[in-house]
Design a protein around this nucleic acid. Structure first.
Lengths: 341, 341
DNA sequence: ATGAAAGCGCTAACAT
DNA sequence: ATGTTAGCGCTTTCAT
C-alpha cells in the first residue's frame, strides 16, 4: 500500500536518485523527466518517509516546546495561545512541535524532557520563566534554543519578548491622561523580567509626568501573579491607602483579583477606582466592567519564535537576536476620568 | 558527543546485535554481558535514535492529538488538562504526542492535519466535539483512533467518556437532599452527548425523587456552554421564575456565568440560590463563594485514552472498547439547605 | 549466548 | 542530466 521512492523510480523509469533530486530540487533535472516523476508521485500518492529522511539527514523535523505545568494549566490561556502560534508557523515550515511540560520546581534529579535525551528535536522553544538548573542542563546538549517571554541568566540566546516597558508606559500614561495622580502598581514574582520591566515602565511614566513615585502605592510582594494574589494585594493596598484612584496591575490575572476585591468592598469601577491590566486575556471582556488593558500579540510571538528557531536550525549558528513584539492599549470600561479634587 | 549503538557495542566488547537484544530484552543474554552493556549505555549516555527505530519498524512512535481551536483556547483548561494526561502517559510508553488544532467549522476543503497526510502518527486521539466531515475523512486513513468526551456518529471506536449521567445524578441528588424542589437546569449545545446526558441525569434524579420535571426550569438553548451564555441563560431563567432555589449548570463555565448574574442581581449564593456546576475547573475555588461541582478526572482521561490507542496500535485491531471514567461530588460553599417554606 | 549481515527508505557524493 | 552506491542507526533472521 505505502509506496516508497523505489516504486516511484520504477514507475517513472528513472533511478531513485533522480526521484530524490526532483523532490528536493537539489539538482537540475530535465523538464520532461521531472514531469514524469511528479506524475508517478501523484499517482502513487507517495509521501517520503520522515524517519528515513531524519536518519540520513540527522535532522528530526521536530521542535521541542517546554513550559511549566502551571503555565500550561493556568486558567488564562496565555502561553497556550503562544504555543498555538508556533504550531501555525510550524505547519507552513513543515515542522512538528513536541510539547512537554515540566514542574516549576524542576530539580537536579528530575529527568530532562525525553525529546532532548532522545535527540528527537532539532531545536527548543522555552516559554515563560523556567528553573535555571534546567536551562543549564539543556545547554549542555547544544541545541538551538529560543526563549519566549523570559530572559535567561546567560543572555546569548535568541529571544522573543514583549515590549513590556512600552506597555507599562502606555497603561500608566493612559491613567495620567485621565488626570489620575494616585496611581498604584500591583505586581508579583518580581524576579520575572517581564514583570519588573512593567514596574520600571510605570515608574518611568510617573517621573516623566512629574508625579512622585510613592513606595506605599507599589505592592509587589506576591510570589505569583494570579487572581488570588491580586485580591490579596488589593486588600493590602486599600486597607492602608484610601486615596488611591487608579491601579495598574502587572497582568490581567492580578487585575481580575483586584476587581474582585473592589467589587466586594464597595468600590465602584471605574467611578471610584480606574483599573488597567496587561495581557489582554480572553476573560477581560466578560468582566464587569470589561477591563482596559495592554494587548500582547500572543499568536505572533509564537510565530516569531518558530521563525527564529528554524533559522538557527538551518544556519547552524544561533545568533542572539532579540525580537520585541509591540503592544497596544485597549481602552474598555474599567478606566475613566479622575473625579477626586 | 552523540553515541550510537556501535559505540556501545565497542565499549562493551559485544556486537551491535547483542546491544539491541539487551535494550529490547528480545533474546536471552547472560547476566554478565547484559550488565556490561548496560554499563556502557549509561557511561555513554546512549539513547537509541528514534528515526532509525521508526525506519526499521515502520512505526513512528507518534500519536496525533486533535481538538478544535475553541476547545484549545477556552479559558478553562479542560481539554488542555486531558492533553497533559496523554502526555504523561506517552512519556512512560515512549510515545510523542503531536498536537494540532482545527477550526470548529472545519469543511470539506480544509486540509487534514499534516501528520495524517504524512503518515507521521501511528494513531489518533480526538478530544471533544469535532465536525463529522473530519471524522469521515480521517477514517479513510484507517489509523487507530480513540475519542475522548465525544461519541462519534459511527460508533465503533474506542471511547473515553465521562460518567455524565452519574455525575448529574450526584449533583441533582445533592440539591434534593438539601430539600430543594425548584431545581433548574442550565445547559447549552445540547447536540453534545455529554451535555444531553447531564440533562438526562438531572431529569432522572427528579423523577426518582418524585419531583415533577418542569420545562420552564430547563434552559438549554445556548449554542455554546460558556460563561457568557451562562449569564444570559440565568437572566432568562430568573426573569420568568422567581421561586427557583437551586440551579444545576451543565458545566462550571456556565455556572460561573450564572453566579455572575446572581451576584449582579442581588441574589445571595447559597442563601437564596444554591448552585452546582460540573467539571471541577481550577477557577471554582476562587469564586465567591467557591463552587460545589462534579469532579471529572481529566488527567486520568488522557491517560486512559493513550493506553487505549497504544493497545490499538500494538494489536493492529482497534476494538470498540468504552472507558467510563468515574466522577465525584465536591461540596463547597455554593450550596446549602433550602430555606423556602 | 552471541555475532555477521541484510535491509528499512532516503540523501549525497561520485560516476558516467 | 542521470545513475550507482555507500551509508545513516537500528532490528532481525540466520549462523556459529
Amino acid at each position: 500500500m505505502k509506496s516508497t521512492i523505489k516504486d516511484v523510480a520504477k514507475k517513472a523509469n528513472v533511478s531513485i536518485a533522480t526521484v530524490s533530486f526532483v523532490i528536493n530540487d537539489s539538482k537540475p533535472i530535465s523538464e520532461e523527466t521531472k514531469n514524469r516523476v511528479l506524475k508517478a508521485i501523484k499517482e502513487l500518492n507517495y509521501h517520503p518517509s520522515k524517519s528515513a529522511i531524519s536518519l540520513v539527514s540527522g535532522k528530526t523535523g521536530n521542535i521541542g516546546f517546554i513550559l511549566t505545568d502551571d503555565h500550561f494549566l493556568r486558567t488564562e490561556p496565555f502561553y497556550t495561545t503562544i504555543f498555538l502560534g508556533t504550531e501555525f508557523e510550524a505547519r507552513s515550515e513543515g515542522y512538528y512541535i513536541l510539547l512537554t511540560s515540566i514542574r516549576p520546581d524542576f530539580s537536579e534529579e528530575d529527568p530532562l524532557p525525553r525529546f532532548i535525551l532522545n535527540k528527537s528535536v532539532d531545536g527548543i522553544i522555552i516559554a515563560g520563566k523556567i528553573p535555571h538548573t534546567l536551562i543549564e542542563r539543556i545547554s549542555a546538549y547544544k541545541l538551538p534554543t529560543v526563549f519566549i517571554d523570559y530572559i535567561p541568566p546567560t543572555n546569548n540566546y535568541p529571544l522573543v519578548l514583549i515590549d513590556n516597558i512600552q506597555g507599562a508606559l502606555l497603561a500608566t500614561n493612559h491613567l495620567i491622561n485621565l488626570r489620575h495622580t494616585n496611581i498604584a502598581f500591583i505586581g508579583g514574582d518580581i524576579g520575572h523580567p517581564s514583570l519588573s520591566h512593567r514596574l520600571y515602565g510605570y515608574k518611568q511614566a510617573l517621573e516623566n509626568a512629574n508625579i512622585p513615585v510613592k513606595n506605599n502605592l507599589i505592592v509587589v510582594d506576591a510570589k505569583y501573579p494570579d487572581r488570588q494574589h491580586g485580591f490579596n494585594s488589593a486588600k493590602k493596598l486599600f486597607s492602608k491607602n484610601k486615596n488611591v484612584t487608579a491601579v495598574f496591575a502587572c497582568n490581567d490575572a492580578m487585575a481580575i483579583g483586584v476587581l474582585h476585591y473592589l467589587n466586594d468592598n464597595g468600590y465602584k469601577v471605574p467611578q471610584d477606582v480606574s483599573l488597567v491590566g496587561f495581557d489582554d486575556v480572553e476573560a477581560d471582556i466578560m468582566l464587569h466592567p470589561p477591563l482596559t488593558t495592554i494587548r500582547v500579540p500572543k499568536i505572533e510571538m509564537g510565530v516569531e519564535a518558530l521563525k527564529l528557531i528554524v533559522n538557527s536550525v538551518k544556519s547552524k549558528k544561533s545568533l542572539p537576536k532579540k525580537v520585541l513584539v509591540p503592544v497596544e492599549l485597549i481602552v474598555r470600561e474599567s478606566t475613566s476620568l479622575c473625579k477626586t479634587k
